[in-house]
Simulated assay, not measured.
Amino acid sequence: MDHILEKNGDKDVRRTTRAAVRAAHDKLSGTPRQADKYLQTIRRLWNYAKNDLDWPLDDNPAAKIGLFGRQREYEPWPEWMVSKLSTAPRNVQTTAELILGTGQRPGAAIAMKWAQVDGDWMDVYDEKGDEMFTVYCPVPLRAYLETVTKSGAHILARNLTEPLTYDGIASAFQKWRKSLGEDAKKYSLHGLRKLAIVRLAEAGCTDAQIQAVTNQSPEMVAYYRRRASRKILSKAAHRNE
């Protein structure tokens, strides 16, 4: 909503056309999730203004425009890409460390406040379930956060009271990813959340323990556990050769 307000706050909403909404959606096709969220936000705002506030609006210009939908399951980052994080912009590094250490979705990690970290414990937010819960703060994350300068209420601070935007972090990440070559193209910030699950499984955590950290569904945890198990078994097989 903030992004829409910044771009269109001084415009007459009644002049919004279906063609313009479709064009904005298509323009963001490189980030399908962001594009669909943008479109869905326009739909909800229009419906609220027309039906709840009784604004004199015509039919919703965002109605029935097809979503891109889930393009593919997010792939966990390979270790070679994680090892390159030291070459990434500082904000991208911090975002990556927060996702890996907390198991949160990128949006929740970017919005995280210093107040959510208290010694050995931290409060993490599950965007899908809209709930906050307390989990153990891993030592590597605590050590990294000690190197981050506090410049506001948020770890990734835009100013004293606001975090950096998801769009800004995503843009910096995409530029950095491009510098790594074609092999990095298919990996997204969401893939770090998946890597967090794989690492927990490889470390011997049970499904219940992984769910306690990431708050994901049993089906999703089981899917990535299978991937981790294949890696562990293949490694053990080579050791026995």
Rank of each mutant, 00 (worst) to 15 (best):
L100K: 04
D54R: 12
T94G: 01
C205T: 11
H238C: 01
A222Q: 14
R70K: 11
Y223C: 07
N47Q: 12
Y187A: 02
G181A: 02
V198G: 07
T31D: 09
N159H: 10
G69E: 10
S151W: 00
H154M: 06
R15S: 14
R72S: 13
Q209Y: 06
K7E: 14
G191E: 09
A88D: 05
A19D: 13
A203E: 15
I210S: 07
E127T: 15
G204Y: 09
T17N: 08
L233G: 06
V92K: 00
T102V: 08
S179I: 05
T149M: 05
N215M: 09
S151K: 00
Y74D: 15
N8V: 08
I169G: 00
A228I: 09
A203Y: 00
D59K: 13
P78Q: 06
E79L: 04
Q93N: 08
R230G: 01
L160T: 08
Y38V: 04
E219V: 14
D207V: 14
R22H: 11
T95Q: 02
S229M: 07
K150V: 13
R230T: 09
P32C: 02
K150F: 04
I4W: 13
R177W: 10
T161N: 12
K7Q: 13
K27N: 10
Y125T: 08
A201N: 04
H25K: 13
P76D: 10
V139I: 03
G107R: 05
V92L: 00
W176K: 01
W114D: 04
R70A: 12
L100Y: 05
P218F: 10
C205K: 13
A201G: 04
Q71K: 10
R227F: 12
K37S: 11
E97C: 09
A63T: 05
P138E: 12
A19Y: 04
K27M: 08
Y224D: 04
R70D: 11
K185R: 09
P163S: 10
P218H: 14
R199F: 00
R230C: 00
Y187E: 02
P138F: 04
E97G: 04
R44T: 15
K178Y: 11
D183E: 15
A157W: 03
L180K: 08
D58T: 06
D59V: 08
G129L: 14
L156K: 05
V198T: 14
L85I: 03
A24D: 11
F68D: 00
R226G: 11
Y144S: 06
H3M: 08
N91S: 06
R105K: 08
T16Y: 08
L57C: 06
T87Q: 11
H3P: 00
R72A: 15
S171V: 07
A157H: 06
Q34M: 09
V124S: 03
D183W: 02
D2C: 01
P138M: 04
G204E: 14
L100C: 07
N215S: 15
W121G: 07
T161H: 11
A222L: 11
N240E: 13
I99Q: 02
Y38L: 12
R227Y: 12
I155K: 01
